[in-house]
């Protein structure tokens, strides 16, 4: 068991290392470099050369990579040359805002997805299932910006219930933030519910035709007891992984939702950073997002390991 956990941990670290390599090389391949970004239109060949010397931009790429990785490991995300501020300061509250946005959506979305998924699974191919499944396909496959735009039209423009975009600075208190972000939360929740409920539904269907449920039924166990005591716990196990994956996807895909609503979060910051060719900022955000993704996956793996005795002896996939 401990060996298995250690193995997962080491694999996660290796994955993170590979990601850092891909991210660093990927960003460095962008045209221009930090010095041109820093000096902008005032760049002269002399000042560029001086700046490159000063920041060690003339070093070979592997030397720069190792320096950068060392800084990151010490918790230093570097300095944005375009905005002339430390990356950590730029990310600051925006990271918190994105976390608030995604966690709130998850807290609403996950229970809702499980309930709807179980209903759909139990009533397979009946009207409630058809309605739930069809809606979920639409919500899941339409691009987030389309869903968001339609919701803005209905709720902000027609009904005038919510503001269409967020117009608060990134450092307001969580309470004030929550007040203005109902529409982004609704959009994210819809997409998340769609993803998770489809898997819950499939699991539920699989479990309901399994031998032990059939057995319980033959023994005359009441239907409600079968659903809640036998089927649900077993249908939930594989759900842990998809919840983690969906949350991780949200952390990345949330960038578009944030852009649509002008929400002061880390995803919008990432897109702005790519437009501005802000190397250090892109690298910093990319590492944070990937780190979260891996941490979530690892948590899900360990959680299912603890909850499912069968996996403890099996070799990790």
């Amino acid at each position: 068991m401990i060996i298995l956990i250690a193995r997962r941990l080491i694999l996660s670290l290796v994955t993170l290392f590979i990601i850092s390599l891909i991210v660093y090389v990927g960003v460095e391949a962008l045209p221009g470099d930090s010095a041109t970004g820093y000096l902008g239109q005032w760049a002269t060949p002399e000042s560029l050369a001086a700046l490159r010397e000063e920041f060690g931009l003339n070093d070979p790429i592997h030397v720069r990579y190792i320096n950068w990785l060392g800084d990151i490991l010490r918790g230093d995300l570097g300095v944005s040359m375009v905005k002339r501020k430390p990356v950590a300061e730029l990310i600051g509250n925006r990271f918190r805002n994105t976390v608030v946005l995604t966690i709130t959506s998850a807290l609403v979305g996950i229970p809702l997805a499980i309930i709807l998924g179980v209903i759909a699974g139990l009533m397979r191919d009946k009207l409630p299932d058809v309605i739930i499944s069809t809606t979920s396909i639409v919500a899941m496959t339409l691009p987030g910006f389309v869903t968001a735009t339609v919701l803005i039209y209905i709720f902000a423009i027609r009904l005038e219930w919510f503001p269409a975009i967020t117009l608060v600075p990134s450092d307001v208190s969580v309470i004030e933030l929550l007040d203005t972000m109902l529409l982004p939360i609704i959009t994210l929740t819809m997409i998340m519910v769609a993803h998770i409920l489809r898997l819950v539904r499939t699991n539920m269907i699989d479990v309901m035709v399994s031998d032990y449920v059939q057995m319980a039924r033959l023994k005359g166990v009441p239907a409600r007891q079968i659903v809640f005591k036998h089927a649900l716990p077993n249908a939930m196990l594989p759900t842990i992984n998809i919840v983690a994956l969906t949350l991780a996807w949200l952390v990345g895909g949330v960038a578009i939702i944030e852009t649509v609503f002008n929400f002061p979060g880390i995803g919008k910051l990432l897109i702005d950073a790519i437009t501005d060719r802000d190397f250090a900022l892109v690298q910093g955000i990319a590492m944070i997002l990937s780190g979260i993704y891996i941490a979530l996956n690892l948590t899900a793996d360990l959680l299912s390991l603890v909850l499912n005795p069968k996996l403890r002896t099996a070799r990790g996939h």
Partner: peptide
Amino acid sequence: VDALLSIPWLLIILLIVSV
């Protein structure tokens, strides 16, 4: 492959297209 899949898809595409 797993490492590539853990980088947000939008970032990969935006990076390649920017380059």
